[in-house]
Design a protein around this nucleic acid. Structure first.
Lengths: 337, 337
DNA sequence: TCTAAGAATTGGAACGCTCCAAATGTGACA
DNA sequence: TGTCACATTTGGAGCGTTCCAATTCTTAGA
């Protein structure tokens, strides 16, 4: 499977390799005559530039890497839509890496990108910062979904705590008090969502109803979290899952147990993914402008790459509540205070 | 962001670059003493091998590329699970490419991989073969999901026509006659599914009820396809969508129009993705062993890479029907023949 | 016709690594 | 102590590009 090289194209076209290089990069100062000669020779040979060699010589790959925490979560597909559009517009190619929903997998993906010398990296949904800090010494990095303020990388996110507060406010306004939360573990934004929930509960004087089940942003953990909550002494009338995926898991389990949503239990997710929007799910959730977040992440990367920005930036968007059919007032048999 | 080079590591360790190279690759014939010396120097410097240079010299990247047709379709996430596991086991790193659900996007992704000189490529859910044939001259390629028999690439798939037949048989056994299909366009396996549907309908003597609405494997096309079918003169009592994603779209639209599934209309998907399995969806569908398909695709690639196989292979698995709650006998008010 | 300035082209040195053949070390054995 | 076989280590030539300085061509103006 030997690939034709620039050398061969040069010979066939009867010019120097330097000229071929110029033509391949679309340099301006090349006569139309030779340009055509070179292009024809390249075409006949099926020549394809070798990015590896090109980068070795030029120190640029014109490629950006995107690490996706979990391919099963549609949230990331939506972020990638924005990333892809912005990258296309800026003439950068994109490579994706699978974070395998684990910190080690994430670190591996980042490492692979660095070894391929991509120009910059977007980490979407990071589970931890160590690999990122390490990598930031080698390439500019943008982290999507984490609220942290970092000195070594840019961050892009929505205000997770504010989103959680919107959820609690909404549920309280419907009359709920026993509002429980299914945690997202170390998932991006999860700690902030949990803390936002706790703090909003306190503000409403509902401290004693604070209840958090463990979880990790997956469908499975949503189900186990919901099961855990059902077993408790004070069954909650509303469950706030840390993301849509785990909300779906909870939805399934509750339905399986013969409970009706929202009649028996109200359920809220976070992210407003396509899952939540499905008509027969109708999940009340927090909307994140995923597409915009994706676009912004590339813009920040390009600022560092092209404009030479070096100080780090935080880009925060306000979330908003999307009310669908999974929330309603608590069942009537709730004991009056 | 200058990276330390092998040269610098060699100087610091007081050895030659050749020795550093040996250590980095884990070669056997290196004394423990110098190995440690080199590793320490590398660690202190934060050295990271440059894959580009490495490949330029060795003609191997130890990296496989996977082109995913549509990140929004969980089917691909499931295939990647298998691919990733097999690649990990074989010590190959994985890079993903976004096909953007378009033939051009797919071709771009393949081209990027070739320019990065990956060792092999898996194309999952290809929309067309031209880019693949072209690329197969430069690297071994495995196509997942297409039934075609190709001379230039290996293919892996389930028997789509057989799957479609299972669906029709199931619906007919429930008493349905007006069974319509929502097409998948040029999506991988779609033509076979449509043809399987037609042929099964004919075998049951239901020729005159054959009805196909256009679609392209997306949720949106599932909705529009269902809408189109509802408007026809003879409203179908069962709809067979070409994949789960479009089935979900149809599900949503039908529910929106006030119809109940399966009481008014039975609905069947294809792929048995996580979407179909959700309890409140309960979509009857055709199961594909996605994980196994993913694993097999890497195995085929490695056979070409490591064992030097050159003739192409087809790997076909039998699909099976998963009956859930979206199918039932047609409504009683159906006019008797 | 000559000259200068600018346009177009080219040779050859990197880029960071692997690979090969050759050189050096080491230890066992006679 | 001298040999020999084998284990280690090393120099240096690529790998396919880009980039820079230098060279050659053109063309306009005098």
């Amino acid at each position: 499977m030997a690939q034709p090289t620039m050398q061969q194209v040069a010979e066939r076209a009867g010019v120097s390799t330097a000229l071929v290089s110029l033509v391949m990069r679309g340099a301006p100062n090349v006569s139309d005559y030779r340009r055509r000669l070179v292009l024809e020779a390249a075409d006949e040979l099926g020549y394809r530039p070798n990015v590896l060699a090109r980068n070795l010589a030029s120190r640029r790959t014109n490629t950006l890497g995107v690490v996706l925490n979990d391919l099963h979560n549609p949230y990331f597909a939506e972020v990638v839509d924005g990333i892809q559009a912005a990258a296309d517009a800026a003439q950068h190619r994109l490579l994706l890496g699978n974070g395998k929903h684990s910190l080690a997998g994430e670190a591996d993906a980042v490492e692979t990108f660095l070894q391929f010398r991509v120009d910059g990296i977007v980490v979407a949904g990071s589970l931890g910062l160590e690999p990122i800090e390490q990598a930031s010494r080698s390439a500019p990095i943008v982290v999507v979904g984490r609220t942290d303020v970092l000195s070594y990388a840019d961050t892009i996110n929505t205000d997770d705590a504010a989103g959680a507060r919107l959820v609690v406010d909404h549920l309280v306004s419907l009359g709920h008090e026993r509002i429980a939360h299914i945690d997202g573990g170390t998932g991006a934004g999860a700690p902030e969502r949990a803390e936002g929930y706790r703090s909003a509960m306190r503000d409403h004087g509902l401290d004693r109803h604070i209840r958090v089940a463990a979880g990790d942003f997956t469908e499975a953990s949503g189900a186990s979290g919901a099961a855990e909550l059902l077993e408790g002494p004070e069954r909650p009338t509303a469950i706030f899952a840390s993301n849509d995926l785990s909300a779906i898991g909870a939805f399934d389990l509750l339905t399986d147990r013969g409970m009706s949503i929202p009649d028996d239990v109200s359920l809220v997710g976070f992210d407003n993914t396509s899952l939540a929007a499905m008509a027969h799910v109708g999940l009340t959730t927090i909307n994140q402008p995923t597409y915009d977040l994706g676009v912004a992440s590339i813009e920040l990367l390009l600022e560092r790459l092209d404009d030479g920005r070096t100080e780090s930036t935080q880009f925060v968007r306000a979330p908003d509540l999307i009310v669908r059919t999974s929330t309603a007032p608590p069942p009537a048999q709730e004991p009056a205070p």
